[in-house]
């Protein structure tokens, strides 16, 4: 099968799973993070369900020389526990708690409630672009001074 079709199927299944599980609902996700309020454990069941096929997939992966529809495995290899990992994850958690949204559900919601989720999606891509281009901008400024 063509790689692009495999990717589309994977994305669509992912989006379907998010919508079916209730994770497309920011209030429900925030409800999981709300330990001192009306706590909603649903997200824990979603995470548990998702880890099962993936744990099996990693075992199968160990027996394969190459992926089924691509020439090679291209996977993260770093094991370094560094500051960007920690700081980035803390900032992500802050934004996740404030909004009840993370990248997957936000993009999936474009297919259900595009107008409601649009401000978040635009801000999210702005944040990604800031991370990419901010160091360059500050460096250029420093160089010109």
């Amino acid at each position: 099968m063509k790689p692009i079709v495999v990717s589309l199927v994977s994305g669509a299944l992912f989006g379907a799973g998010l919508a079916f599980s209730g994770m497309a609902d920011p209030a429900r996700v925030q409800g999981f993070l709300d330990l001192f309020g009306n706590w909603d454990p649903t997200l824990a069941f979603v995470m548990g369900g998702a880890l099962i096929p993936m744990a099996i997939a990693w075992i199968i992966k160990g027996k394969l020389h190459a992926p089924l529809a691509a020439p090679v495995f291209d996977l993260p290899t770093s094991t370094k526990l560094d500051r960007p990992l920690a700081l980035g994850s803390l900032l992500f958690g802050l934004g996740w708690g404030i909004s009840g949204l993370c990248p997957g559900p936000a993009l999936a919601d474009l297919g259900v409630v595009p107008l409601a989720v649009m401000p978040f999606v635009v801000a999210m891509f702005t944040g990604m672009a800031l991370h990419r281009f901010l160091p360059q901008l500050t460096q250029q400024k420093g160089a010109s001074q």
Partner: peptide, 25 residues
């Protein structure tokens, strides 16, 4: 929604498994 959550979670895990075993990513 434990049942819907779990089934939806399985779909998400299956999607990620397709990406890993199909495209190696």
């Amino acid at each position: 929604m434990p049942i819907e959550g779990f089934i939806g979670g399985l779909l998400i895990g299956l999607a990620a498994a397709i990406m890993l075993l199909g495209l190696g990513r």
